[in-house]
Write a protein that binds this DNA or RNA. Structure first.
Length: 379
DNA sequence: TACCCGTGGAC
DNA sequence: TGTCCAAGGGT
């Protein structure tokens, strides 16, 4: 690992910030230092590219201009505004924290990274980002960019996939952060990490800080950062039920024990949940359908007859799971009573006003493409 | 600690 | 088309 002198640190700050002042990106959340603006942008930017975030950020600020507006927003409106951004707990945590600010902090922001950590959804990185950008605290903001940039500049070979490695980087970066302009320093590192010092196709030869880049000097840029690979997502087979009636489609809202909490889908049943201990034979499509029909009758008093939809299962990949959804269709001639079923009938024309996860959109597209072109047509 | 949590872009 | 990557946090 490289070790910089105090003189080198001074030169690095000056070079970096001069470049940032000249070529830093003009982004909507950089127009001021309002902590609400910084906060919302930082949450949206977690594991999400800048160009994806921009339209969401602009719409979010139009819908929820202040912390108080966010705290009071109906959850379904919030989830709709977040639809498509992914990692949906971010949205619900954002509102929880907004309510913490209103209720516990009387609307007055905590101004240090250590205090900001108390807000739901704000971790070490986001706390450092808000504290430095909005409040001028001299702290690092160690995200993927900081890992990548400093691992290359200083030849740090610690595995950034390990949680404990963040502490090492915080200790290394802390004395390098510009004490006069900590927010600009941290944002400059991010801009560097998304331009000349990217993960792939980096261009260290033209980087404004190439003179400080040990990995460039020693021709080993591609070796940094060191990061162990994530395991591949495991296949998870599902049945997706398209139950129609004159009242529309049967839809369910996912509960807090499930991923995609608060979003609406067709009824989805994991195939593994249909295993019957009394069965001696392995499950087949026919036996699973029989189980499903029986469950709807006995548990929900809903008589349905399920028919497989032709075609391969709808596939949707998450970070740790690969869903493979077989669609089964049941058409009811009248809108059955849903007293015993935790769902509701939704008219085809209004389905798309609900917050829907991507997998639900895929299911609807598949249904339309398999002989139901008029389904879900808006107005 | 190790694992869970979404989506779209780039190659 | 599969794979990796992108301004992480919660549990």
């Amino acid at each position: 690992m490289e070790k910089w002198s105090t003189a080198t640190i001074r030169e690095f700050r000056q070079t970096l910030l001069a470049w940032y002042d000249r070529e830093g990106r003009d982004l909507p959340w950089r127009h001021d230092q309002d902590p609400y603006h910084v906060w919302v942008s930082e949450i949206m930017l977690q594991q999400t590219q800048v160009q994806t975030v921009i339209p969401y950020y602009l719409n979010f600020m139009a819908m929820f201009p202040t912390v108080a507006d966010l705290a009071q927003a109906p959850e379904e409106q919030l989830l709709k505004a977040w639809q498509g951004l992914g990692y949906y707990s971010r949205a619900r945590n954002l509102q929880r924290a907004a309510r913490q600010l209103v209720d516990d902090y009387r609307g007055k922001w905590p101004q240090t990274a250590a205090e900001l950590l108390d807000l739901t959804g704000i971790g070490p990185y986001t706390a450092g980002a808000i504290a430095s950008i909005a409040f001028g605290e001299v702290v690092p903001a160690v995200d993927g960019n900081a890992f990548r940039v400093f691992s290359r500049l200083l030849l740090i070979d610690a595995d950034i996939a390990k949680p404990q490695t963040r502490k090492l980087f915080e200790q290394v970066i802390q004395p390098i952060v510009d004490p006069q302009r900590p927010g600009a320093f941290n944002q400059a590192i991010m801009d560097l990490g998304s331009s000349y010092m990217t993960a792939k196709n980096s261009d260290p030869a033209h980087s404004p800080v190439r003179a400080f880049d040990a990995s460039y000097r020693e021709n080993c840029v591609a070796d940094f950062p060191v990061k162990t690979k994530a395991p591949r997502p495991r296949p998870v087979p599902y049945y997706g039920l398209i139950v129609t009636s004159p009242a529309g489609y049967l839809m369910v809202q996912r509960d807090a024990t499930q991923m995609l909490t608060g979003y609406w889908t067709f009824p989805l049943i994991q195939q593994a949940d249909l295993q019957d201990a009394t069965d001696q034979q392995p499950a087949t499509l026919q036996t699973d359908i029989a189980h499903l029909e029986q469950r709807f009758m006995t548990d929900y008093q809903l008589p349905i007859t399920l028919t497989p939809l032709s075609g391969q299962p709808v596939s949707h990949t998450y970070t740790h799971q690969r869903w493979q959804v077989k669609l089964l269709v049941a058409e009811l001639s009248s809108a059955a009573d849903l007293t015993f079923y935790p769902g509701k009938w939704v008219a085809a024309s209004t389905i798309k006003t609900l917050p829907l996860p991507k997998v639900q959109e895929k299911l609807m597209t598949r249904y339309q493409n398999q002989g139901h072109p008029a389904a879900f047509k808006q107005n």
